[in-house]
Design a protein around this nucleic acid. Structure first.
Lengths: 258, 258
DNA sequence: GGACGTTGTTCCATAAAGTGGAACTATCCT
DNA sequence: AGGATAGTTCCACTTTATGGAACAACGTCC
């Protein structure tokens, strides 16, 4: 190891902690000593220290679980704050592959909020969408969030705002469109939000199969052919799947008997 | 301290980690040395060890943030698994105060899933609801989840299933009922799910104001008067608020200048 | 219910690992 | 450029972690 001087105890404690946190079920003392190859006494001392500091806690049977520090962090929404950090590499890769503008959006109220952006290579006039909200019914991201139940239209809505002449304005047509999105696995907004702008978006899932964000590629409509759109779609869906997997999503996970 | 033998390094590291995780914004190296009163060299070594083990990471400015281990835990839904553990004391207290059966339910599909239960003192025949699903429209918990947007009825639904003669079966009446729930801050199901059974539920919020669960009190209708129902409602709402607060919810939080 | 196997904690001599001051390097600010 | 601030590496010193063994606490199996 390159530089592990004067931190044996901390490294060992971290190793133990890692075992507990990454395990899917409570971990026993004996499993820990075995996995980490430590003496019982050492394991005991370190685990007591971790427990004393709220890093692990013990269930009724004395098995170890992640402690208050982890649980508190998770409940305080620590994950949300780091969505962008986790997503960054995937956005970058998608940007490199397509050369277009990449955005990550989440549902916020009755709109899509952009939380991260990668600017395209051959950009004419860069709009920074970060922090902006776009409508649900006429953006690719919005359609994804609607289609997978991550966003909802305001109740009792009769008509959808017309943004361009291609905008879908009837609830019935939108419902059909959303079914298509679910069937294809991605959504397209072809000049429905802004004339000359085409965008494509794919869903990002988290551990429990819920869609939490939409990953989109936006380009000038004039620059995109049917073929290149297919290529972009494939890349975009792939990166969205990669990000989902980084967020703990395991598509149709199957449990095997132990 | 009672028993802190042979763990100085781990304790110090945990202290540093705690500072980073509980801080609301990235923490600088200097702040850490100051707060924990450690030598620069010690702090540096310990923080490098924590970083190497994925417990903290550093932003562009070298400031410390909770690391992959925390973020991963949060994204994998670690919080959900511990909802029951966090909630237990609140359920117990509510059970003691009312002497009735207490349940905690979350939205799951188009129903309410019971994740925890405390049985009532003067129980005639104990039904264990844990793991069971109850409908959204005729249970107190379901009404709460619907009213606060934590659950949604299946789309294109025309009519609601009639469970008893008091069940609300029209969408319009239900919409009115839900407005009432939001106004009162709690929901009641008076023999709408099962004859002879009355239940009351209050919303549980998390850090971002989203409702994540419903806390309910169920009793035999014959045993409840208008007065006692009011008392129960007050206790139930209070415990739900306590739990919300434990989950990081701060009602209309106000930030003061530092 | 008593004796054993299993599991986890405490004790203690040993030496290995952590400590902090100082020297050194990187970075920022004017 | 030059000085201040922030952070890392070095190294002699000794405090602190280590692991074997004894001990304590449960479960559980006849």
């Amino acid at each position: 190891m390159s530089n592990s001087n004067g931190t044996q105890a901390v490294d060992r404690a971290a190793r133990l902690l890692s075992e507990v946190v990454h395990a899917s079920s409570p971990v026993t003392f004996t499993e820990l000593t075995a996995t980490c190859g430590l003496a019982k006494s050492t394991t005991s001392r370190l685990m007591l220290a971790l427990e004393r500091n709220g890093l692990v806690r013990r269930d009724d049977h004395g098995r170890f679980l992640p402690g208050e520090m982890f649980v508190g962090f998770a409940w305080r929404g620590g994950a949300d704050a780091s969505l962008v950090a986790v997503a960054r590499p995937f956005l970058d890769r998608l940007g490199k592959a397509t050369g277009e503008t990449i955005n990550l959006g989440v549902a916020s109220g009755f709109a899509v909020e952009q939380v991260a952006q990668v600017d395209c290579a051959h950009l004419i006039r860069g709009t920074n969408w970060t922090g902006l909200s776009v409508p649900l019914h006429c953006s690719a991201q919005g359609k994804v969030l609607l289609a997978y139940g991550a966003a909802h239209l305001p109740p009792r809505l009769e008509r959808l705002e017309r943004r361009t002449e291609k905008t879908i304005t009837s609830l019935v047509s939108l419902r059909v469109e959303l079914a298509g999105v679910r069937a294809r696995g991605y959504a397209v907004s072809d000049e429905e939000l802004q004339p000359g702008l085409i965008a494509l978006a794919a869903p990002v899932y988290r551990y429990d199969g819920t869609v939490v964000a939409a990953l989109s590629v936006s380009a000038l409509a004039s620059r995109v052919t049917r073929d290149s759109l297919n290529t972009i779609a494939r890349r975009c869906v792939a990166e969205a799947a990669g990000l989902s997997s980084a967020l703990g999503y395991r598509p149709r996970a199957r449990k095997f008997a132990p």
